[in-house]
């Protein structure tokens, strides 16, 4: 893209951002709206999302709403959010929403109400055994050493090393970056998130080398120790060939603003602290505490955090 064409877009974006800031200003107290009707909150397939959702739901309850938690698939949820069967989904990772999300957003039936505030990270991770085979890590140049490539090579990638990539429908940014930097690795698409997690767990337990693309915070990283590669350079403007921290956003049904104005405001203000979320994930997955108990505890201990969101938005 040339500078000339990108200029109007940038201005437009700045304008939009300005409008967003204006509309997101606190103390826009509003009516509860249809408080006797239940707000349907989407619970997706992973623990971190469930914690965020349960906490957001409890805050809405404190404000006087009725809330129901509905299990929803990552792609199908956009169908529910579009027609108001689901009203809000508070933790959506924008790197694996496929083409479903942009299509739904374009239709105007859903609305992105901004970041959840998680400190996210995306990049290449490696197990401890990889660090032994490739001294010099986390610098990415260490991955170019023939001994390192050989340690990561498998029958289906020979003579290249094996790089475990995201499922085929999540895009090919890592594969592009490998190619752009002439790195001798073959990207193997994982097929599913479960497949990536399973391999990571097995490689860590069996102390075998593994190089893969991944993101943080993720519940498996509470169990498994990994290193992050200092990434090779890439053109930050070209999101097809460069990995940048993925946005983690909140998305609501477009009719929410009118139906439950205060709830809409609360969810817009709602933020999640990365370290706290990681602690709670650990409590659920390692210590066996229930999701509900963990969320209740957060609400009890963090009134100073959530009370202002409620007060600012409820008239």
């Amino acid at each position: 893209m040339t500078r000339l064409t990108s200029l109007p877009t940038t201005t437009g974006r700045a304008l939009l951002a300005g409008i967003a800031v204006l509309s997101a200003l606190p103390s826009q107290a509003a009516e509860l709206g249809a408080a006797d009707e239940t707000i349907q909150m989407a619970m997706l397939e992973w623990t971190g999302n469930n914690i965020s959702t349960q906490i957001a739901g409890r805050i809405l309850e404190k404000a006087g709403y009725k809330v129901e938690y509905v299990t929803a698939g990552n792609f199908p949820q956009f169908s529910g959010l579009s027609d108001g069967t689901l009203d809000a989904s508070v933790e959506i990772w924008m790197m694996n929403v496929g083409d479903v999300y942009p299509k739904a957003l374009e239709s105007g039936l859903i609305e992105n109400i901004g970041t959840l505030g998680l400190r996210s990270r995306e990049g290449w991770i490696y197990t401890k055994a990889t660090a032994e085979a490739c001294p010099g890590l986390p610098d990415w140049h260490a991955l170019m050493e023939p001994a390192c490539v050989a340690a990561l090579a498998t029958p289906d990638t020979l003579p290249n090393g094996r790089f475990l990539d995201y499922p085929a429908d999540w895009g090919a940014r890592s594969a592009n970056m490998l190619a752009d930097n002439a790195m001798p690795y073959t990207a193997i698409p994982a097929g599913s998130e479960g497949a990536m997690v399973a391999e990571l767990r097995a490689a860590a337990a069996g102390n075998t080398p593994l190089l893969m693309t991944f993101w943080e915070p993720h519940f498996v990283l509470a169990d498994v120790e990994v290193g992050w590669v200092d990434m090779p350079p890439c053109d930050q403007a070209n999101l097809e060939r460069c990995i940048v921290p993925p946005p983690v956003d909140k998305v609501v049904w477009a009719g929410m603003k009118d139906k439950w104005p205060a709830a809409y405001g609360i969810l817009t203000d709602f933020r999640m602290d990365t370290d706290q979320q990681q602690q709670m994930m650990l409590a659920v997955s390692e210590k066996g505490e229930s999701l509900q108990a963990v969320a209740d505890k957060w609400i009890a201990e963090n009134e100073a955090v959530w009370r202002p969101w409620v007060d600012a938005n409820v008239k």
Binding site: F75, G98, D99, V100, K103, P167, A168, D169, W170, G191
Partner: peptide, 10 residues
């Protein structure tokens, strides 16, 4: 896999 890719692309 094509079926899954189609799901992701809607």
């Amino acid at each position: 896999q094509q079926v899954f890719i189609a799901l992701g692309k809607a």
